[in-house]
Each structure stands twice: as structure tokens, then as C-alpha cells.
Amino acid sequence: MTVTLSNPQDLPQVDVYHQVAVATGSRQVFVAGQVSWDADGATVGVGDLAAQVEQSYANVATALRHAGASTDDVVRLTVYAVDWTPDKMPALLDGLARAARRTGSTATPPATLIGVAALDVPEHLVEIEATAVVGQPASAPAAALPETRPESRPEFFATPGYGDRQLERMGYSQAVRIGDRVEISGQGGWDDDFVFPADLEDEIVRAFDNVERTLATAGATWADVVHVNSYHVPETPGFIGETHNRVMVEQMRARMDGRAPVWTETGVPALGAPGMRVEIRVTAIV
């Protein structure tokens, strides 16, 4: 089995997910955040959280299936819920149970629930993204598979300028590379003095520039990016906003050289610095 799930005895024993997943497969599958839409892009279950959870999770299962994976291969699940309050938990669990029956899933991977201010459109109440690890397909000849670097110890990097400052002041790095995989810290639209542009479009463009600078420290580029998470302070309540959406799409098209990574976009009430309106983090495979 590619993924082994466990609950250490010193951590809470939760029945709907596990605390730890150990993956031994050779292929990583990243699923963009899935919302409650059908194949035509129409929202399913408007105003019904349980129905939207069911459809969103079913869409995750569909995406995994097309990548040669299943929910049993998932190592991390992230659920974003709009205006989350604890009284919504029964509806969330009901939706997950309905999705499990619908897809035949028995998986309970490590999961994170995050309350957000908004999603891509006001009708969407929940979004679910997943990461899975699967073994080499039996039918694939070894020569057809991409070469991978041997596993190595993590290497950490600080982006010259603001990254050096954050490493000294706050004790964290901007990027880490393990073998062929690069993860970066969320990047905002700041300059090296942590000053943000007044114009939202300029702030988003600079955030993309900072992602590019940070990837370069670990030997990666935008062309290596497979997964994007973006966090936005909405322009209006309940809607991330046209400027956020337009500039994000323009920048990804301009920088990805025709490739389209998986992307999860979420609205949040605040970010790490006063006046900050966007933050972008990515995963790259080089």
C-alpha cells in the first residue's frame, strides 16, 4: 500500500481523519481546490453546505481517478469553508458521509479545516483540495517515467533582501528543497523594505515577482510550478473581486509558458501585515 495512516497514541484519536500519513509511492498528485460544481460549471446545492461538501469531495475523487489515483492515496486534505462557525460541523460531516457513500471511499487522511471570508464566487460555500501519492503504474516502462533526483536532506533558502531580513527577525526561510520538490513560504507584494504598492494590481504583480525570486534561490522557475495557493483579502464582502481574479489569471498565463498548474484561490479576512491584500505560495517539481 502506498499510504499508511496512523494516529499516535499521544494525540487525539479522531474518527473522521488521521493525524499522520506516511507515503512510499513515486508519483505525487496535486488536486486543485474543488468546489460544488457539475461538469458544466453550474453550482450544485446553492445555500446547502452538506450538498456542497458532498459534490466538492466527489469532484476530488473524480480528479484523482483521472490521475490514476483514488481517495485511498490521499496524504493531505484541506477544506476551506466560508464564514465557518462550529454549529456548521454537523452539515460538514453529513456532506462528507454522503460523499463517502457516493464514491465508495473509506479514506480518512490527515485533514485541515480553514474558515475563509470568501471563495471564487459568492454561491460557493466550501472548497476541498487534496494531495495524493501513488506508486509507479504497472504498465509504464521505466524509460517512460521522468528521472528523479535521489532523496536528500532538506536545503533551506532565504530570498536575497527581504528573505535575509525575515530569517534574522522571525526565524523562517523562504524556500526549502528536498530532492526534486521545492516548497516556498507565502509571498506578498512587498519590496525589500516591506513596503506595499497602493495599487492592488501592482501588489499582485510584485507578489508574482517575489515568488519568482524565491523559486530561483532553490533552482526553480515558474515553469516548474505544479500547485498554486493564493490568499486574498476580498475587495467586497463575500467576493474575492474582479481585480484579484483578472490579474491572477493574467500573471499565470504570462509566466507559465502555456502550462496551467493546479490552483486554489481563497478569500481571507486578513493577512500577515497591515494593508496586505494578497499572498501566494507554490509547490514546484524540478
Rank of each mutant, 00 (worst) to 15 (best):
T4D: 06
L5H: 12
P8T: 08
D10K: 11
P12V: 11
V14L: 15
G25V: 04
V29I: 12
G33T: 02
W37Y: 07
W37R: 08
D38Q: 03
G47N: 05
S56R: 10
Y57H: 13
V60G: 00
G68C: 07
S70W: 11
T78K: 13
T78W: 03
T78D: 10
D83M: 11
D83F: 10
P90F: 09
G95K: 00
A97L: 12
A99I: 05
A100W: 11
T108M: 11
P110H: 01
A111S: 09
G115E: 05
G115T: 01
V126K: 00
E127H: 02
E127N: 09
E129G: 12
T131A: 13
T131Q: 12
P137S: 10
A138Y: 04
S139N: 14
A140S: 11
P141C: 04
P150G: 08
F156S: 15
A158Y: 15
P160K: 10
G161R: 03
G161P: 04
R165E: 09
Q166D: 15
L167S: 02
M170N: 12
S173M: 11
G188P: 01
D193K: 08
F194M: 08
P197E: 02
P197K: 12
A198P: 01
D202I: 10
D202F: 08
E203F: 06
F208H: 00
N210D: 03
E212L: 13
G219Y: 05
A220G: 08
T221V: 08
A223R: 13
V225R: 00
P234A: 02
E242F: 11
N245I: 15
E250W: 02
E250I: 02
E250C: 01
E250Y: 01
D257A: 06
P261C: 09
V262T: 15
V262P: 02
A270R: 13
M276R: 04
A284I: 13
I285H: 13
